[in-house]
Nucleic acid binder design. Structure first.
Lengths: 341, 341
DNA sequence: GAATCGCCCCAAACCGCTTTGGATAGCGCA
DNA sequence: TGCGCTATCCAAAGCGGTTTGGGGCGATTC
């Protein structure tokens, strides 16, 4: 069942049927209802491919996922971000197309999406310091929203980010208030923009209390259980070991916890831990009382909002949109006063 | 730059240019090379929307992701499966479109994908007992491959699955060989097909040694850290507590580990644990020596293979394809002889 | 009563490609 | 020389919608 056939059944022209279904004013209300009813009755759904060609719009947005030729890993927060963004797309009848490409072909992937007309815009994930994708997308004229920010970018661009700097600054201050002075930072890879900002916040908090950040208490690695464990174990073996940890993610935090337990230390009493909690649906930080004290910001909600920004940007191309979210600091069972204090 | 313009620049008809680029034989080799060169020079990429309309193929496959209106969660293995499948799609110039829909609209989502012509086929995720999607897709005539199987399905269908039954049977046998008799099962939700099969394998192993499965030692819940912790804590509080755990996932396993530690028990010495390891890129089971003894099967590889099956099914519609993968049993540090033995 | 105006509807062009059904020209062969 | 064949190429018709540019007709205006 296509438009032409439906039209002929109704004794109308395709033009009128199309207009009736799309809510154009130049069609009689009675006619419109007749058309709507017939469309429903015959289970008519306009062919997306034809709409796309006729309108010149893809009705789709792209997410490019670069994938490990070198050392990177599929980001665990990705699934939740996608779930959030996907809800927005579905509600607006947009398709979400994912391009999984070797990371040395990322640029080609963006160019392809644009020149082949597969999408109307893209979300940029995991921005890095001086991320080249911003200039690239500017160049090829593909609307985009960055999830995060890219320190060093010179062009204006749309983004949605968590205030990572302030989150980690507040978390560090909280630990300082509890009397901790040897505070470790188990950070993500520091070519990632968010990791840089978190480190800055952490350092700012220490410096404000006249403490000098100790390089031995700072680790930067992938946010895996393994890496978290490795970093914590190393630091706990130091002669002047930390009494508190600031950790980049829930998963890293589980590695840190494992290291604590191996060392016979009790989290929350002997050692305090604060993590960043992306509020992942499959990795909740406790049910009633949070396991970890945490800076929390839902990445799924971020996905929802970033998608909305992008759709808006596509619908009315205008000035860039920027949105900064604050993470909450939530109390859990993993922090307490410094035992040495 | 479109086909018509490229053709006119070359002094050729669109027909010939199209054929030249698509490798049809009725075009002179010299002409073809001239066309190819011009296409590259002018950075010509055929418009996907037009190709799709003209050929009647979507050149895309769909993944429908039902999302929590009730209690389900975004599956953590999903990201890796997608990454694997996505690689296959990219290599074959297919798009991957994800539909995130409220779970009570899943059927409508599949129907929509078909009738609007957005995709040429779909991958079905997380099949349940008597999963209705199989009959549905059969009905509407959309090619599909199921990741997993659906016990109770009457129609033939294509699937790719891990031999969950045998994996858990072997794991249980391994624990039995170590002298354990009180073996707990921390399973996934048992309306999920894979969970049912795992339980069956577990029970078969016990029964074969004349042991009766104890309902108190069987839990079935979402595969989260929280749920794993909850189940293990409950079981460890039993008068006749288990000496070994068979756990459905890495993440559940971390919850179990937490419960062990809270109870002052050392994993691998006091209590043995075997998990199922999907070999997730962000959740590796140790680097050199695995943390957990595990039944392992890469879900990413499964994604790659399932996608290949589907593309093949789309290209040459034929008999159903079915593929059963065996999980490896890998030794880690979480198992040892039963201390009571 | 004629000109004007809205309201509804339609025919046809168009989006950018593929594909069908020739057309033309050169060549071998009788 | 004439005919059939093959190798190349092209015009035009789709694919299934949207959108432009009218057209007919009853009501309003003067």
């Amino acid at each position: 069942m296509n438009l032409k056939e439906l039209a002929s059944r109704l004794g109308l022209s395709p033009t009128t049927v199309s207009r009736a279904l799309n809510g154009y004013p130049e069609v009689n209300e009675a006619t419109r209802e007749r058309v709507m009813a017939a469309a429903k009755r015959h289970n008519y759904h306009p062919n997306t491919r034809a709409i796309r060609l006729a309108t010149g719009r893809a009705m789709a947005v792209g997410h490019v996922i670069p994938v490990a030729t070198r050392h990177e890993i599929v980001n665990p927060v990705f699934a939740d971000f996608i779930a959030g963004a996907g809800e927005t797309y579905s509600r607006n009848d947009y398709d979400m197309v994912l391009s999984v490409v070797p990371d040395d072909q990322e640029e080609a992937a963006y160019r392809g999406l644009k020149s082949k007309g597969n999408v109307d815009g893209v979300i940029v994930h995991a921005p890095k310091l001086n991320d080249p994708r911003i200039a690239l997308l500017h160049d090829i004229g593909l609307p985009f929203v960055v999830h995060g920010r890219a320190t060093g970018a010179t062009l204006p661009y749309s983004w949605l980010d968590v205030n990572n700097r302030r989150a980690f600054q507040r978390a560090a201050e909280f630990l300082l208030d509890l009397g901790h002075t040897r505070i470790a930072l188990v950070n993500g890879l520091e070519f990632m923009d968010f990791a840089i900002r978190r480190r800055t916040g952490y350092e700012a908090a220490l410096t404000a209390r006249a403490l000098t950040p100790d390089p031995a208490l700072m680790a930067s690695d992938e946010m895996t259980e393994i890496a978290g464990h490795r970093a914590a174990r190393r630091m706990l073996a130091l002669p002047d070991r930390p009494t508190a940890f600031l950790v980049a993610s829930m998963i890293s935090g589980m590695g840190v916890r494992r290291a604590l337990e191996e060392a016979g230390l009790q989290m929350g009493r002997d050692i305090s831990v604060i993590i960043h909690d992306d509020d992942l649906s499959y990795m909740k930080n406790g049910d009633d009382v949070p396991i970890f004290t945490a800076t929390r910001s839902s990445v799924r909600e971020a996905g929802r909002m970033a998608a909305e920004m992008l759709l808006d940007l596509i619908a009315n191309p205008g000035p860039v949109q920027q949105r900064l979210l604050e993470a909450e600091l939530i109390m859990g069972q993993s922090t307490g006063p410094c035992p040495r204090a």
